[in-house]
Every structure is written in structure tokens, then in C-alpha cells.
Simulated assay, not measured.
Amino acid sequence: MKLTYRVEEGVRLGSLLWEFGPGWRMISSAMLGGGIGEREWVLNAQVVAGYSRMDPVDHLLSLGPAGPGVGMMTAASVDRYVRAADGGVEAAATVGLRVPTWAAAPEGFRDPELAPMRVGTVNIVAVIPVPMTDAALVNAVMTVTEAKSQALIEAGFPCTGTASDAVCVAVPVEGTPELFGGPRSEWGARVARAVHAVVRQGAEEWRPRDPK
């Protein structure tokens, strides 16, 4: 993982880049490279608060390397990223909780602080060193999300996340694929612990510097 900086709109912004190269499959909810497929890199790009560009995919493409990749955005400071490992699984997260929210809300509910186009504020990347079936990848995303919500609640935030969090899980292509990614499977349990650790730490470190 590489941390770089750029200046946009007079603001110094950071980006985290994972360069995997060929031979990796990823599942992601990101705007760029979302879904399931072979990808070579992951970018978590910091953008200005109140981001309002209407070409986020093109913007991400301009920031990432060549080839197919995954690109996500956040208004959180990416230089405060958190990393953890558990039994071969690696996880990293950028955590910003200015507008925490519960997943289920009344119909028509809209937080007045949300901009028309709000970028993700809790972005998670998990790397698993074994291949997985499509179903196991979906299960792994569920596990990541459940571990994230557990960590946020334990840290004292009454929320399941923010309204536009993003996630990416990366696994190698070659090998016999794992069938399960749930929290009580061998690899899912490791994913859950690693993600829980980074989100819990990120949430606890975020509170004192931005109490809003």
C-alpha cells in the first residue's frame, strides 16, 4: 500500500493505493470497478468535504494507474488509515463519522447534513490470501459489514455506518476456491476480527478530533 498526496481546489489531499497486479479477483461496492471481477489495484482517494463533481468515475480513473481497478472516495483523512492482520488476512480502513446513520430509517428520511452527492466515509479494504467462489465473496462482504457495525456500536456510535460507506475484498484467482466467507468460517472469522480491529480503532481515534 502506498500513500501519496496531491492538491485540488487548494487543498492537500491524500490517496491510498494498493497495486496487486494480475491474478486477483475482487468484489466491491465502489463506483469504479464495483461488482465482481479481476482487478489489479485498489484506490481510496480523499476528496474535499462537500464533494460535488458529477464525474466521480472519470475523476478516479485520472488518479489511479492503468488497467482495471477499484476506486473509492472518502472525505476522511486517508493518512489516518488503520491496518490490522489476522491469520493471513489483512484489513485497512479509513474512518470518518461526521454523519453516522442507522441502515433502517423511516421512508422518506433524509439527513439534512447529507450533500446531494455524499462520498463514503468508512471505507474498508480486506485482502484474503485464498481464492473464493462468488457466493463466498458475497458472504465475505456481509462479514465485513457486520464486523464494521459491531465495532462502531462498541465504540459508542449509535449507527451501523454512514450512508455511503464502501468496501472491497480481494482474493487470488489461482487455487481451489473456498466455499464459505461467513463469520464462523475459517477465513470469514479472520476477516471479521481484522475488520473489527481497524474500524474500532479508527472510530475511537476519530472521536476526539471531530466531536460533531
Rank of each mutant, 00 (worst) to 15 (best):
D86K: 14
T4E: 06
V125H: 05
Y5I: 00
G10C: 10
P112K: 14
C168R: 08
R25I: 03
R39M: 10
T162A: 11
L60P: 05
A92S: 13
I124P: 01
V138M: 04
L137S: 07
G71E: 06
V89M: 10
Q46I: 08
A84F: 08
E9C: 03
G181T: 04
A75F: 04
T101C: 11
V127H: 06
M142E: 12
A105L: 12
A75H: 11
R53I: 03
G71V: 03
Q150F: 04
A93H: 13
V47P: 10
D79E: 13
Y81L: 11
T160P: 03
P68A: 11
A140E: 03
M132V: 07
P158A: 12
N44M: 09
L97F: 06
A84T: 10
G96W: 06
A91N: 06
I128W: 01
A170I: 05
A189E: 12
T4L: 02
L97R: 15
V144T: 14
A115V: 12
E38Y: 06
Q201D: 08
A103T: 11
A75Q: 14
M73L: 15
A84V: 08
T162S: 13
V191D: 00
G182R: 10
A105K: 15
S149H: 12
E8I: 05
L17D: 01
I27Y: 10
I128N: 02
A115Y: 07
R190L: 05
P100H: 15
Y5L: 08
S185Q: 05
V125F: 00
A126S: 15
A135P: 00
A203Q: 09
A92T: 07
D111A: 09
P131R: 13
G182P: 00
V122H: 12
G71W: 00
V82A: 15
A75K: 14
A84Y: 05
H59K: 02
L179V: 10
T94C: 11
G181P: 02
P158C: 05
S15W: 00
L17V: 09
G108S: 12
P177M: 01
E174D: 14
P68M: 10
M72V: 04
V167W: 04
L61V: 07
R207A: 07
Q46G: 12
R12K: 15
V195P: 09
S149T: 15
A163G: 15
R118E: 14
E186T: 13
A84L: 07
A76V: 04
G23M: 03
D58I: 00
M72C: 01
D165P: 10
V138N: 06
F109M: 01
A140G: 06
R53N: 04
V127F: 05
G64Y: 02
S52L: 04
V130R: 15
K212Y: 08
T74S: 13
G37S: 09
R83T: 13
E40V: 03
